[in-house]
């Protein structure tokens, strides 16, 4: 068997220049330096639906939004114990992402599993942003090693520890894989297209269930037998 080829490895700032993003290719492995912040459904709702003012200066402080809740705790003296960090699946946040770019000026969305190339073309490309996916999933301990310091914890009381906005200083923070480029192409969709050809072969000799489910027909007037 041919030995698998390791991917290209790149260090990137969390406030990256457009030229640095233009050089990235799908499948490159990226390690980040700078400041990231977590933001997922709780933060998006607070900022975009309830109209709360952002508690930090974006994108000046950071242009990297991590879809993440860390395994972390705030001690009674206010200091933090942060162990592992891994992403949560990003496809669930599509409905907020366009407005979030407008409000935050983010250039990097970090998360699990990416979004669709339609989302990239509609929301990422016009904002000069790309998507980096975590690896595994998830390399929580390796990412935890890249954390230098928790700089701030916002909306702790309003959202709880898991949904609060963690602002984290990082160094050599990774690995991430480049999932989308500045043209809006998706690595996952490229890989899906490659695996699609073989899937029918795996299904040979199987049989559809005698009782169907909605979804296998989308006509609700259909019977399922």
């Amino acid at each position: 068997m041919e030995r698998p080829q390791p991917p290209r490895r790149i260090r990137l700032s969390t406030n990256p220049a457009p030229e640095a993003l233009a050089e990235l290719k799908l499948g490159d492995v990226v390690y980040l330096d700078g400041v990231i912040y977590t933001g997922r459904e709780g933060v998006y709702k607070m900022a975009l639906e309830d109209g709360a003012d952002l508690p930090l200066d974006l994108p000046a402080e950071s242009a990297a939004n991590f879809h993440c809740s860390p395994a972390a705790m705030q001690r009674e003296d206010g200091t933090f114990n942060l162990g592992a960090v891994t992403a949560t699946a990003s496809f669930r946040f599509t409905k907020w992402i366009g407005k979030w770019f407008a409000k935050s000026g983010a250039k990097l969305i970090l998360g699990k599993g990416g979004m669709s190339s339609a989302d990239y073309r509609a929301h990422f490309v016009p904002n000069g942003a790309i998507y980096l996916t975590t690896v595994g999933y998830g390399t929580g301990a390796l990412l935890g090693r890249g954390v230098k310091k928790v700089r701030a914890l916002h909306w702790r009381k309003e959202l709880g520890l898991a949904q609060a906005m963690w602002v984290i200083e990082v160094e050599n923070f990774g690995p991430f894989i480049v999932e989308s480029d500045l043209e809006g192409n998706s690595l996952f969709e490229r890989e899906n297209a490659k695996t699609a050809a073989n899937i029918a072969k795996a299904y040979e000799g199987t049989r559809p269930a005698v009782l169907k489910r909605f979804g296998e027909t989308d006509d609700r007037s259909d019977e399922l037998i």
Binding site: P4, G83, T86, Y137, G138, G140, A141, L142
Partner: peptide, 23 residues
Amino acid sequence: FVLQAMLENYEAAKEDRRAMCGD
């Protein structure tokens, strides 16, 4: 590459005594 990263991650978790995954 992903599997190699995971194998490194297990080692890191044990060395640092930190959770292997953030979730």
